[in-house]
Nucleic acid binder design. Sequence first.
DNA 1: CGGTATCCAACACGATACTG
DNA 2: CAGTATCGTGTTGGATACCG
Lengths: 121, 121
Amino acid sequence: MRTPLAPDMFDPVCPSELSPIRFGDKWAGLVIRCLEGGPRRYSELRVPLRRVSPKALTASLRSLERTGLVARTVRTAPVRAVEYALTPLGHSMIAPMNAACAWASEHWDELLDAREGLGTR
Amino acid sequence: MRTPLAPDMFDPVCPSELSPIRFGDKWAGLVIRCLEGGPRRYSELRVPLRRVSPKALTASLRSLERTGLVARTVRTAPVRAVEYALTPLGHSMIAPMNAACAWASEHWDELLDAREGLGTR
DNA sequence: CGGTATCCAACACGATACTG
DNA sequence: CAGTATCGTGTTGGATACCG
């Protein structure tokens, strides 16, 4: 199955913004979300993740590869194309990620309150 | 309810060691685990977390306070004592933490494989 | 007892330019 | 197309010593 990519992962507000739960490095969670709907080429990923520099994106992908969550495959003919896809292990992370997102949504107002309570003191 | 603290959070092997899922900063997850069984004083926390420098432990606690997961209370009489406890929000994180731990346990061998597959190439 | 102060090394991340 | 090279900055975390 191959669903369309979100046009911009930073629009309007990333629900994970306030959540303390992180999956790997800074961008790993968003990258996994982008790969959830099927394999993607590097340049495809750059569109919704346009606010991430190529260096940081590559670093995140390499890290995900190292952890075994993402597989990188290169095709040379007819044109060079590099595809990134979730491994079975990567797919298995979707469940805990959804749990984390659900938690953040449920406690959104408390998380906001905590952040604001700080500014005032 | 107030259960005894683990003697050493780093012994024998932390199950979260290989997991890419993080809760806040480097030590936040372990700190939350220590507070799960009831409020603790700073010096109590330092025992199971003795491999964490006081500076890093304080930083982690402050960060958890800021996020609204931990409450800090000071008692001055008869002696000065500072207690850290999970807030309701903090307690609500136990569920996603357990989900993350379960995930790591289930996929432990795959995570190990991924790490080792790297050393060889 | 419950932290700070200080110093330092390592790393993460961004911007930009460039390349096989 | 799919990155790498380079440079610079900011943050993280450890070690150690000290303090009210």
